[in-house]
Amino acid sequence: MPLDFPLFPEAASTMAGQVDALYIFLVVLSAFMSLLIGGAVFYCAVRYRRRSEDEIGSNFHGSILLEIVWSAIPLAICLLLFFWGAKVFFAQSRPPADALEFTAIGKQWMWKFQHPDGQREINTLHVPIGQPIKITAISQDVIHSLYFPAFRVKKDVLPGRYTTVWFEATKTGSYHLFCAEFCGAEHSKMGGQVVVLEPEEYERWLAGGAAASQSPAEAGAALFEQLACVTCHLDGDGGRGPALRGIYGEDVTLNDGRTVVVNDEYLRESILTPAEKIVAGFQPLMPTYKGQISEENVFKLITYIKSLSGGRETPAGGAVDESNVPQDAATDAATEDTP
């Protein structure tokens, strides 16, 4: 049994300091309040202990002023914490535009990661230090949750919908990677390590591994041919389906008048359930690829389609009907309006 156990987790990301600051503030506040109330109870219990059998307490039993004071102070502190916590949360929810894009697939009971250049690994994730890393994740079966305690970030990984988590590591080393959402028999074994490397070491690690024969975009292009997507989605106008060059991140109008942003979630939906949201001017001709294409291959196709738009960045996430929702919130706002 290791006796020199830690009381505070390792802080290894740009987010960790912000979360720890909230935590320390709340710990101090809680200690103060607990001592204040505990002390008051103890003081009164001793000072006003019963001295004779038929003694009764005083008749002082109300004060509007006190009620206002002890309602207003907690309210003010709680509101402060709300705004502070929301600020940190919004930062946790919005990956920087220049983040390296990783993907993760959760399944009972393993994590499958893919690096931007196509390198793959299971239950271990190597990342470079000082570089924002964005992981777009999906589950093949039940709900999982990708949790990096040392980075203070966590996001549920859902079947049928993309979610994203991001972090920027600030300390090299090896840290825990957990599944935080109960997912069945081997839940506690569904995890491993995230290894933070210096950029050169990361390059060396990438080069040293079984080099991926193709990048995800190249693999996606091959699939695009193989699945015959190319017969309708021509590289120019006039196809039976919309042309895909340059569309990623743009708004498109649907045949029912709604507008959606072309992002990862919309592309995934259009591959698996194409009839849901048809672009204006096109017929619902495309067959569904649901059950015929793995989540890995959906990721590859999306990466390929993204590459047709010069790798421009928008957050992954759901299609958004309200065109006025700020871009960086599109991810989450959309997840509410699922079928």
Binding site: Y23, L81, W84, G85, A86
Partner: peptide, 13 residues
């Protein structure tokens, strides 16, 4: 602690 969103991200579950 748990109602504070930025902190809940870490301690949730």
């Amino acid at each position: 602690f748990l109602a504070t969103m930025g902190l809940d991200t870490h301690v949730h579950d």
